[in-house]
Amino acid sequence: MAETIPGTLMSAAEPRAPGAAKRAIMGSAPGYMFLLPWLIGFLGLTIGPALASLYLSFTDFDLLTSPEWIGAQNYVRMLTADPKFATSMQVTFLYVIFSVPLKLVFALLVAMALNKGINGLTVYRAVFYLPSLLGGSVAIAVLWRQLFARDGLVNAFLANFGIEGPSWISTPTYSLWTLVILSVWQFGSPMIIFLAGLRQIPQDVYEAASLDGASKWRIFYRVTLPLLTPVIFFNAVIQTIDAFKAFTPAFIISGGTGGPINSTLFYSLYLYQEAFAYFRMGYASALAWVLLAIIGLFTAFSFLTSRYWVHYDE
């Protein structure tokens, strides 16, 4: 009590301070006991390695001999003398730019269709969600490899119409698109988040709008969409970060090469090759930090621009 009354009983309060501080630290003990496993992991597996990789990104390191400091050479090489880096950037950005918006549009469309208490909601939702759950596995990448092979299911289907399709996965102009389709196929989880968001919009807002004679399209454009912007924002950020990190499908479909002619050389795949096929660990660390910078910049940019288009309550 004493310390809350300024100017009075200060002398009485003062000797308490060290005791209180001590108690606070003693009181911290259980907290740190519970936190211990995470704390060890955080220091030993996250912060420590992150700092180490920042250091390694300025070195030449092949895992066998100790790292040799070469200044910013890795970064310079990346930007000036590494066409594969430029290609992997281009492939990854194309993938992000096409897969994320397409996936979100599908997710929103289906969520809108499912929103208004449709019969069989749970069945539809389960069916549309299933590919999201399975999609990250090697099995689905294997399936995709066959679907878009020369004698695969897609071409067997096209043959019914007399069309002879190419081998989609081994034609550089199409191979990336098979991966975009694979990503869009997994629209289920953003769809579920959209559904949850649509449920949050109070019914009376719609009633007021339709009483005012607003058309369906106008209600969607003026009411639903603005009220849904926080969810759209969230989904867009999460899906974009995820798309930047994509690895498994490109690895399986191209047999680990990123081919044909580097057309599926995702950034993560390139980084993996540099690190674990060529053992250029310093260079791979620099690649990792560039990826972090890109994701960081993108996230910062999203949050900064969000105030112009994302509507939060109050």
């Binding site: 996250t46 390695p49 992150a50 390694l56 930047f244 980084l271 990792a288 990826l291 972090l292 996230t299």
Partner: peptide, 16 residues
Amino acid sequence: TLMLPYHVVLIPQYVL
């Protein structure tokens, strides 16, 4: 750490 891409800790973890 939720936002941190695994690539950034990958190589030192491997070395460890």
